[in-house]
Design a binder for these strands. Structure first.
Lengths: 145, 145
DNA sequence: GGCTTATCTACAATGAGTGTTGAAAAACAA
DNA sequence: TTGTTTTTCAACACTCATTGTAGATAAGCC
C-alpha cells in the first residue's frame, strides 16, 4: 500500500474526493499486518475521529480495494479481512484458535495441476491458506511444565 | 461420506436419533459433487419432504461435520459449502464467475514453508483454492466465433 | 404400549454487510 | 474568497446467512 500522501494523490487523480475520514483510514491501515476486519479498522479509526461511521470505513476499504491498494480476503473467520500488503506475492497463515492472520511471504512455483485434474477450469490463480496455531496460542494451549 | 445405511448406524452408535428428515438429507448428499450450501441441500430435500425446515438441515449438516462425514468450507462465495468427499485428500476449484466449486484431487508435497517464513506458527494443514473459470462460464463469456 | 430424551418446526434474533437520503464538505472556477 | 457542482458523510433501515428458543413431536428402549 502507498503512503497516506500518495493515496491522497491517487484518490484525487481518480476523481475521488479526499476527506479527513479517508485520510484517517489511510493512516490506520499504514503498516498494519493484522489483516483487520472492517469492524477492526473502524475501532482504530474511532480513536482518532469519534464520529466516523462504519459505513464510511466499508466504503473507503472498497475504494482502496478497487484501486488495488489493499486486497480483501475471506479466510473463513466470519468476516472479510483487508491486507495492505499488495506488493509481495504471498499466502496466509491463519490461527485455528484465535483467528489471527499473517502473511506468509513465499512463492510455490511447483503448484502445477496434474493433467486432467482441473476438470476443464481455466485456472488463473491459487491461494493457499495454512492453518495452525500462532505462537501465542501455542503457549496458551500447551503450557510448558 | 458413508452410505445412508451406514450413516444411520453411525448416528445411533453416537447416541443421535435417526429421523426421516435426517435420512432424507443423507440421501441428498450421497454422490453430490456440487459442494452445496445449506440452502441448496434444503431445496433438494424439500423435493422429497415438503415440510423439512432449513434449521433441521443446518443441524444435520453440523452433526455430519462433527462426525467427520462431510467437511464444511468457506471459499468466499458468501455461504458455507459442504463437501461429502472426505476420503480423497484434495483441494478446490472455484469459478470466479458463477461460484461453482469442484474438487481438485491432487496432493502437492512440495508445499514446504521456507525456514523462518512461518512466523512461529505451528502449521497443521494447507488448503489451496484455485480460482478461474469453469467450462460453462468459459463458453458463455468467450463465445467461439 | 409407555417412558425418556432427542429432534422437529416455527419464529425471533444475531451479525456482517449494503441501500437510501438529506446534510455537509471537497474540488474547482471565477 | 465566494459560489457552484459533485462527492461523501452519518444515520437509519434493510438484507441475508446462520443461530437461539420453546413447545410439540417422534425415536429408541424397556
Amino acid at each position: 500500500m502507498k503512503t497516506p500522501e500518495e493515496l491522497t494523490e491517487l484518490f484525487r487523480a481518480n476523481g475521488r474526493k479526499v476527506t479527513a475520514q479517508r485520510q484517517c483510514i489511510f493512516r490506520v491501515l499504514q503498516g498494519d499486518v493484522s489483516h483487520p476486519s472492517a469492524e477492526a479498522v473502524h475501532s482504530a479509526a474511532v480513536r482518532e475521529m469519534e464520529t466516523i461511521s462504519l459505513k464510511t470505513v466499508y466504503q473507503t476499504l472498497h475504494d482502496l480495494s478497487e484501486l488495488g491498494e489493499i486486497s480483501s480476503l475471506d479466510v473463513g473467520t466470519g468476516m472479510i479481512r483487508f491486507d495492505p500488503n499488495v506488493d509481495d506475492p504471498h499466502h496466509h497463515l491463519v490461527c485455528r484458535h484465535c483467528g489471527k492472520v499473517r502473511d506468509l511471504v513465499a512463492s510455490f512455483p511447483d503448484l502445477k495441476i496434474p493433467r486432467g485434474a482441473d476438470l476443464g477450469f481455466d485456472v488463473g490463480s491459487a491461494e493457499i491458506v495454512f492453518r495452525g496455531l500462532c505462537p501465542e496460542c501455542q503457549s496458551t494451549l500447551q503450557p510448558s511444565p
